[in-house]
């Protein structure tokens, strides 16, 4: 029984590692400028976690195999080095490992969160609401008109509560249900929630950030590859949460300009 158990543990451990080694289910390829650091950090962690996982399971299995149902003469032995050795090993090896991960990981985090967006970054506002994202472009004046929550009316598609009749800045604001951005251009994303908590997650862009109702937060990123990607909500926001998504279209500057004109005409 014990030997069978030992073999089972090893089989499970190896089988668990196979899809990871084979890259069967992986995150979609990175399309951002900051994502490489995250990916590097990820594979580094995977290596260390994988080794710890396999080593612990296999040693556990070997000991179970070896020390179960011993003969009547068997004597209790102590692991070489005893507890002190193990504690030192844990402190040194694991301590060094996690410190390394922690310090190295700070770089990836800092690259995204501690550096301000470039001065010429393009501002786009995203508003999350149950259960759709709407994106706002400031238009030619480069300024977003003020939001009047009491004017929000989804039936007539005033999702932001804009008042272009009275607010000069709102007149040329463009509100769209999908997000188009020019490739290789830094985007400064201003995040606003209309109702409850939501999140902005684009796996390809290596960004995920919650919307905080009552507190506008911002993100910045640069997409490097033209294509159509999905923006999904990852913060439970109600019954339509599973269906809260929008498309991100990364396009050439020329295509983007055309798109913006087309959207402006639809306002």
């Amino acid at each position: 029984m014990a030997k069978f158990f030992a073999v089972t543990i090893i089989l499970i451990a190896v089988a668990s590692a196979v899809p990871i080694v084979m890259h069967t289910w992986e995150a979609p390829a990175d399309i951002s400028t900051h994502g490489a650091l995250i990916d590097e950090q990820m594979s580094e962690t995977m290596l260390e976690a994988g080794i710890s996982f396999l080593a612990a399971q296999i040693i556990l299995a070997i000991f179970i195999w070896q020390f179960s149902n011993p003969g009547p003469d068997a004597r209790i032995k102590t692991f070489p080095g005893g507890a002190k050795g193990l504690v030192i090993a844990a402190l040194v090896l694991v301590g060094a490992e996690v410190m390394a991960l922690g310090i190295f990981g700070t770089k990836a985090w800092a690259a995204q969160y501690f550096t301000p967006p470039a001065a010429d970054a393009m501002a786009v506002q995203v508003q999350a609401g149950q259960f759709a994202f709407y994106f706002r472009y400031p238009g030619l004046d480069g300024r977003f008109g003020p939001i009047h929550p009491d004017l929000i009316n989804e039936g007539s598609q005033n999702f932001y509560g804009l008042d272009p009749d009275h607010d000069q800045d709102s007149k040329d604001d463009i509100v769209a249900a999908e997000m188009a951005i020019p490739v290789n251009k830094e985007i400064h994303l201003l995040m606003h929630s209309k109702d409850v908590g939501h999140s902005f997650y684009v796996p390809e862009l290596r960004v995920q950030q919650d919307f905080v109702p009552g507190l506008d937060v911002s993100l910045h990123f640069t997409a490097t590859k033209v294509g159509k990607y999905e923006i999904v909500c990852t913060q439970l926001c109600g019954l339509g949460h599973y269906n809260m998504k929008a498309y991100l279209e990364v396009m050439s500057q020329a295509d983007f300009d055309d798109w913006l004109k087309k959207e402006a005409a639809m306002q």
């Binding site: 950090q41 990820m42 976690a49 710890s52 996982f53 612990a56 399971q57 556990l60 990981g105 995204q112």
Partner: peptide
């Protein structure tokens, strides 16, 4: 013994979630 095995398996995935930069990908 199964507990030990499970605790190891569940524990190593904590390595990932402990790091904010990786959590960006894996959160939620």
């Amino acid at each position: 013994l199964g507990f030990v095995s499970m605790f190891v398996s569940g524990g190593v995935s904590g390595f990932f979630l402990a790091q904010p930069s990786i959590d960006i990908m894996l959160h939620a």
